[in-house]
């Protein structure tokens, strides 16, 4: 076990170092959430005045900001399998497999790397939100909850993305699948609008949508009247899903090894 942790650390180190060599990527990846936050947030700022309400605040940007952290983390996760495909294409994996490296660390490190980047981006999005007047009602604890939700959201879907990458092993297929999963789950959540404003069937669907679990947990700590039971429940659900998808990714890794 300690060996697996050490090796995961080495592998995460390798990927973060390579990423830091081109830090422009972190900035480029932030363009999309900033567009949502700055443009979309302004465009629809009066949406909170809709009859029926359910926003819990009159400031749309306050409603939106924690959900954008989750959205960014979710979309980042759906793409995380691309790094695995790149390692497969460049034959980096077979080289590692001829060493005593912990097999599980090769998969888990991809998930940890992906989640770490989501947390770093989450901090940046929250800082920008702060300058736009968003205040996290529960203070530092709230920040920690939002970032934990972002990390769990990311690892849940990064596990899935890694598993799919190991099954399809082709970039084009991976892109198609990421889009196929990404957009529907995004729109079937309360990221952009209060759940009370959407059709009944969507409200039901959102209950089972992991993206919505993350949005609920993150938004609860921003708005007044935080329901901690709900925060805990949704974080626990995301944790459970992360464990399940990590197990799926590990299983697909074994399947890949059998094809060598």
């Amino acid at each position: 076990m300690t060996l697996a942790v050490r090796h995961t650390w080495f592998m995460v180190g390798r990927q973060l170092r390579n990423l830091m060599r081109e830090p422009i990527w972190i900035a480029l990846l932030l363009v999309q959430p900033m567009v949502w936050l700055l443009l979309y947030g302004q465009l629809f700022k009066r949406v909170t005045q809709l009859p029926g309400g359910g926003f819990g605040t009159t400031s749309y940007i306050t409603f939106l900001a924690p959900a954008i952290v989750i959205m960014n983390s979710f979309f980042g996760a759906t793409w995380s399998g691309m790094a695995m495909i790149s390692d497969l294409d460049r034959d980096v994996l077979p080289r590692f497999l001829a060493t005593p490296v912990s097999r599980i660390s090769l998969v888990v490190s991809q998930i940890v790397r992906s989640a770490l980047i989501a947390v770093i981006q989450g901090v940046i999005i929250l800082l920008v939100s702060l300058t736009l007047g968003v205040s996290v009602h529960t203070g530092l604890l709230g920040w920690i909850v939002i970032l934990a939700a972002a990390a769990l959201m990311n690892s849940a879907f990064a596990g899935l993305s890694q598993g799919i990458a190991l099954l399809v092993r082709k970039e084009a297929t991976m892109i198609a699948i990421a889009n196929f999963i990404g957009l529907p789950l995004f729109f079937l959540s309360s990221t952009l609008i209060s759940i009370r404003q959407v059709p009944h069937w969507m409200q039901i669907a959102a209950k089972f949508n992991p993206v919505n679990w993350g949005v609920i947990a993150a938004r609860e700590v921003v708005l007044r009247g935080t329901h901690w039971g709900s925060v805990g429940l949704h974080l626990a659900l995301l944790f459970g899903l992360s464990v399940a998808t990590a197990a799926f990714a590990t299983w697909t890794f074994r399947a890949y090894q059998r094809t060598i």
Binding site: R17, R90, D91, T99, V101
Partner: peptide
Amino acid sequence: SGVDRDATGRENLTLQGRIQ
């Protein structure tokens, strides 16, 4: 070749040594 193209030669060798 199974080298990590985004890392330096020294980083490649060091990582390989560590996992060994």
